[in-house]
Design a protein around this nucleic acid. Structure first.
Length: 306
DNA sequence: AACCTGCCCAACCGCCGTCTA
DNA sequence: GTAGACGGCGGTTGGGCAGGT
């Protein structure tokens, strides 16, 4: 496993920005070979370029390749990057394989210049995707429960169906499970218990889920429009199959919320606490996911916005 | 208009893993 | 088994640009 001699040491090889002429030469050469580059090291000479092979490869893969998608990242792409980064870390090339037409370099740049700052503004550590250290650590559970109640209130204020409130109640159960033990070690076990609650409620949670994705809670992008949520609830919720009682009236939920410390001082908010709490679930197998379930996404997103 | 500052992103650098002789 | 060649990857840099003073 010897180290590659760096071609940048080659005498007289041009560096720096590529000219249009060089781009044209490189593209024409690769197209002439039917897109088959062969060995990059030999390419510059064959193409008549005064560049090193590595520079040619980079220029091609990051800029000249015909299947590259240019332009701003969409909300969906941004969300996907955050989600993938939460699970993969700085594996830009792996992340890039999930975003058609985007290069690892582009994603890396976008992360460093946009997403990273956005997460920091939101009080989320862009490396760990955890809530940044907060003086109110011992209020995590209360904060999470408060997030639930914000969500429930948001759902009711948004005029969602009884099914939606039932799902909010499911969230409440989830937090009861999480909150039954305040110790750090107990948290994981309680999250697993919470997952059992979610699994046992498959009649309410419409889609087969894999794991909770806190990143959905940590960005300000809009999720699916509310009418889609309504549609999904209409299609997927099966009243009567749930083990839950009828939903509490919204005002009751709001009253319950008042019993928690709901004052989001400074940049703290219950939903972010919720996001931090959910993070450990990423590591547990077979957990439920928010992916594909617009109710959870929308409700929690809405709660964050409030 | 001139200068300063911060941001963006294309490109570079150096390390790593795999392949091959 | 060893070492060189090579492509790939992630971190970093610096030129260009926009906005502010």
């Amino acid at each position: 496993m010897g180290r590659s001699p760096c071609c940048s040491h080659d005498a007289g090889v041009k560096k720096g920005p590529w000219t249009e002429e060089e781009d044209k030469t490189l593209v024409e050469h690769i197209q002439k070979r039917g897109g088959n580059v062969g060995r990059w090291r030999g390419l510059p000479k064959a193409a008549g370029l005064n560049r090193c092979g590595k520079s040619c490869r980079l220029r091609w893969t990051n800029y000249l390749r015909p299947d590259i998608k240019r332009g701003n990242f969409t909300d969906d792409e941004e969300r996907l990057i955050i989600t993938l980064h939460a699970g993969l870390g700085n594996k830009w090339s792996t992340i890039a394989t999930h975003l058609e037409g985007r290069t690892d370099n582009e994603i890396k740049n976008y992360w460093n210049t946009h997403i990273r700052k956005k997460l920091l503004r939101m009080g989320v550590d862009p490396v760990t995707h955890q809530q940044l250290p907060c003086d109110q650590t011992n209020q995590h559970v209360n904060g999470a429960a408060a997030a639930l109640l914000w969500a429930a209130a948001a759902a009711s204020l948004g005029g969602l169906s009884t099914g939606a409130l039932m799902q909010a109640q499911l969230l409440q159960q989830l937090f009861q499970a999480i909150g039954s033990n305040n110790s750090t070690t107990g948290l994981i076990a309680n999250l697993a218990a919470a997952n059992t609650v979610l699994k046992s409620s498959s009649s309410i949670v419409p889609n087969q889920m894999n794991y909770l994705q806190p990143s959905y809670l940590c960005n300000t992008s809009n999720f699916v429009e509310q009418h889609v949520v309504q549609q999904q609830l209409t299609n997927d919720t099966s009243p009567g199959t749930s083990s839950f009682a009828a939903a509490e009236p919204a005002d009751q939920l709001c009253n319950t919320a008042a019993s928690y410390d709901l004052a989001p001082a400074g940049d703290w908010s219950p939903a972010r606490e919720f996001a931090g709490l959910l993070e450990p679930m990423m590591e547990l197998p077979g957990l439920c996911s928010l992916e594909g379930d617009s109710f959870w996404k929308d409700t929690l997103e809405e709660s964050y916005r409030l």
